[in-house]
């Protein structure tokens, strides 16, 4: 609409009641909005944080010397190893179980889909803490376990539940069965997110159902399944601490065993917390890499490595295009 050369002519025609002199407008500097509110809140946070950090150094109750002494103690490291082992086993079983249950849930057979629904309903509907206690006390409910043909009295083998159900087995069963129910819902959401046309394309190529699931549907569902699964892994790592109720020596229970003797409760909880933080940080990084991998062929997959994303400063350069320029000046800024 406007052209620098024709400006005098244009402005002559436009009745501009209170406009600033236009020649000056071009040389004026742009001042971005001042966010006084934000700055005030940021200042409060910085001060509060500084005060807290100061107590870390000055408060003798932290007993950092004790934290340092026990940080690499063999019992703590053993506990950490048990925690990791439990997390991995429970997650692997949970994911496989979730996958199977999610596929069963879609079965046209009402018994299969009904059983899957019942499973999800029960294990999502009761606290994992209660489930773990149940597995711990299962011997009181079923004193012996036997393998045989139901309703016939034929037993092939039988065993005392108390000897079978070690704290480790109770922990694995409790955590993985609970996880399976959540994973089933996550997987179901992922499967439903894949366009029906993808299955049809696989069918048209003569692929078997299993192959379509493995090669076409699951890799695409992964994009939807992975982020919540990553969250669940991190959540599982921390939920393993609940297993301390079964007297299974994972990280928290190991710390508890130590402070039960020396009464250095806080320093040992700090030791455990730091280890949990370290592992979740590593897991978060791993999750990011996995999402990058499975995002292939999709526009909003993260392209850059995480370290770069984290270190990149979000600086807003005073871009010309976003500066508040009077409409009549817009053409000129191009020159």
């Amino acid at each position: 609409m406007t052209d620098t050369r024709s400006r005098p002519a244009v402005s002559a025609h436009v009745p501009a009641p209170s406009s600033a002199p236009e020649a000056d407008a071009r040389d004026m500097k742009v001042v971005s909005v001042r966010h006084y509110g934000r700055w005030a809140v940021a200042a409060v946070i910085v001060v509060a944080l500084a005060a807290f950090v100061e107590t870390l150094f000055t408060n003798p109750n932290y007993r950092w010397d004790v934290v340092g002494r026990f940080f690499f103690s063999p019992r703590i490291l053993d506990g950490l190893l048990h925690t990791l082992e439990l997390t991995v086993i429970a997650m692997v079983i949970g994911i496989v179980l979730g996958l199977v249950v999610a596929i069963m849930r879609q079965s046209p057979n009402p018994v299969l889909s009904g059983a899957a629904g019942l499973y999800i309903w029960f294990f999502r509907g009761t606290p994992v803490f209660v489930q773990l206690l149940f597995w711990g006390y299962i011997a009181a409910l079923y004193p012996t376990v036997s393998l045989g043909i139901p309703f016939t009295g034929i037993d092939l083998a039988s065993a005392d539940t108390r000897t079978l159900m070690t704290p480790w087995l109770a922990a694995v069963l409790g955590l993985s069965l609970n996880e399976g129910a959540y994973m089933a819902e996550i997987v179901r959401g992922g499967l439903n997110a894949v366009d029906q046309g993808q299955r049809e394309a696989g069918q048209a190529l003569g692929m078997s159902k299993a192959r379509i699931m493995r090669r076409v549907v699951l890799p695409q569902a992964m994009r939807v399944i992975l982020p919540p699964t990553g969250n669940n892994v991190i959540s599982m790592l921390k939920t393993t601490s609940v297993v301390s109720v079964l007297a299974f020596p994972e990280l928290l229970y190991s710390a508890q065993l130590i402070y039960a003797v020396n009464y250095l409760t806080i320093p040992l909880l700090i030791v455990a917390s730091i280890w949990y933080l370290i592992v979740t940080t590593v897991l978060t990084a791993g999750q990011y890499q996995l999402e990058r991998h499975f995002g292939q062929g999709h526009a909003h997959a993260p392209e850059e490595p995480m370290w770069r994303r984290l270190t990149r400063m979000q600086r807003r350069t005073p871009a010309r295009s976003t500066a508040p320029i009077p409409a009549s000046e817009k053409e000129d800024t191009r020159a």
């Binding site: 366009d195 046309g197 993808q198 049809e200 394309a201 069918q203 048209a204 190529l205 003569g206 090669r215 076409v216 890799p219 695409q220 499975f294 292939q296 062929g297 999709h298």
Partner: peptide, 17 residues
């Protein structure tokens, strides 16, 4: 049987991954 019958869809249905 479907191996012998090629099909092309309106929505392409290429495997995006």
């Amino acid at each position: 049987q479907r191996r012998d019958i090629g099909m092309v869809f309106q929505g392409f249905n290429l495997f995006p991954h």
